[in-house]
Design a protein around this nucleic acid. Sequence first.
RNA 1: GUGGAUGUAGCUCAGCUGGCAGAGCGCCAGGUUGUGGCCCUGGGUGUCGCGGGUUCGAAUCCCGUCAUCCACCCCA
Length: 416
Amino acid sequence: MSSGCWSPLPGMADLGPPEIRLWQRVEADARRILALYRVEELRTPILERTSLFQRAIGEETDVVQKEMFTFEDRGGRSLTLRPEGTAGAIRALCDVGAEAGSRVFYLGPMFRAERPQAGRRRQFHQLGVELLGPPAPEADAECIALMWRILSEWGLADARLRLHTRGTVADQPAVREGLRARLAEVRDALCEDCQRRLDRQPLRVLDCKQAGCQQLMAGLPALTTFLAEDSRRYLDRVATLLSSLQIEAMVDGRLVRGLDYYEHTIWEATHPALGAQDAIAGGGRYRIEAEGRVVEGVGFAIGLERVMMALQARGVAPPPDPAPAVWLVSVGDRATAENLVLAERLRSAGVPCGADWSGRSVKAQMRAAHKAGAVWAAVRGDEELAAGTCRLKHMASGEERTVAVDELAAVVSGPA
RNA sequence: GUGGAUGUAGCUCAGCUGGCAGAGCGCCAGGUUGUGGCCCUGGGUGUCGCGGGUUCGAAUCCCGUCAUCCACCCCA
């Protein structure tokens, strides 16, 4: 409501109950699947040297050009909050000397200084996977299968998967020049943005949403015609492998990735329940030169906020608040103090237990027990303290009986 | 970075031909000297985003500003 120091920064949100429970469920589902694929967690710093991202992602990309949170530390070093996870993961894996065969996932916040809108935050969260190893269609297909299985586990198998290739590094000049030459013929018909893209990022023109440009793109020869034969065969192979896995992927020549490190296979999953920002996951094969060595791998990242939006659009609600087995109701100051001790005893016995220490009326405390969804309410006053008992009420039936305090844990743990 | 819409109670919102700031839900208390839900009664919990201006008088009209949402752009 206000912009004071007590409200979060634009595009950055607090996340707590009840939504956090859906996040926890989604994360637990993903971890279970990842274990099946022998992919282990990697946690890297969210702050890195700016040069890491410039080198890995590409100096000319939009992400590096205008979307990074970059600042100088006290020593004048340029630091950046990670805008994506691959660069840091590769850096970390090189650091520990990991080689082809490393299989890791990461889960955490990423930062991009964009204008917030539906499905786009400045701090957002990704689940990413990196499978290191040299190019092999089977490796790419396995990676896509993993992503698809995670989405399916979440109930998002109605996502749409699009597939394409960037070709190899060697193909890039031919693709750029070929595309540029064909586009130059229609230059004047392109929108302003695209005319500018022509020189620096001709591939981006394919992605333009302007109706006029889209029509022109439709008339262009397939991107693959500019690629070497081997690159085309690689894409065909991945597509064939996916259909053998019953994964439906549409080969789409207009699919583009924004980061420079991709080569060969690229893909993206969009979800029909989302708005303008409908990509829930994207990935590809990459090749990153790090300190004189070349790291090859294949990976993807899933945007968790968008996953939550898709789930909510599908009517998936956060799991319910965990209800306490028993709620302690205190009559008088002595009982209140004694109930604190009792609560700890119950918890030591593994019994989820709630109470309030406000000294309010029994009526108010019972109301709190009801609201918390407690199965039982245990009432204690001076009389019960003297007798070593409590009045135990079963909330659903309203039945009430006297139970020895020493037996309370056993009774409330047993069948209601 | 550009454009449009919206900011009133904890939440959802009404009030906007300028004239005492409201509803529903929620919350609190009572109806039950020690018992929840349903019902009844009572309680408004507020910097009308913020700062100026016009006016006898502004939540309402004007200007500015901040924030949020949506879209462009870009991407997960």
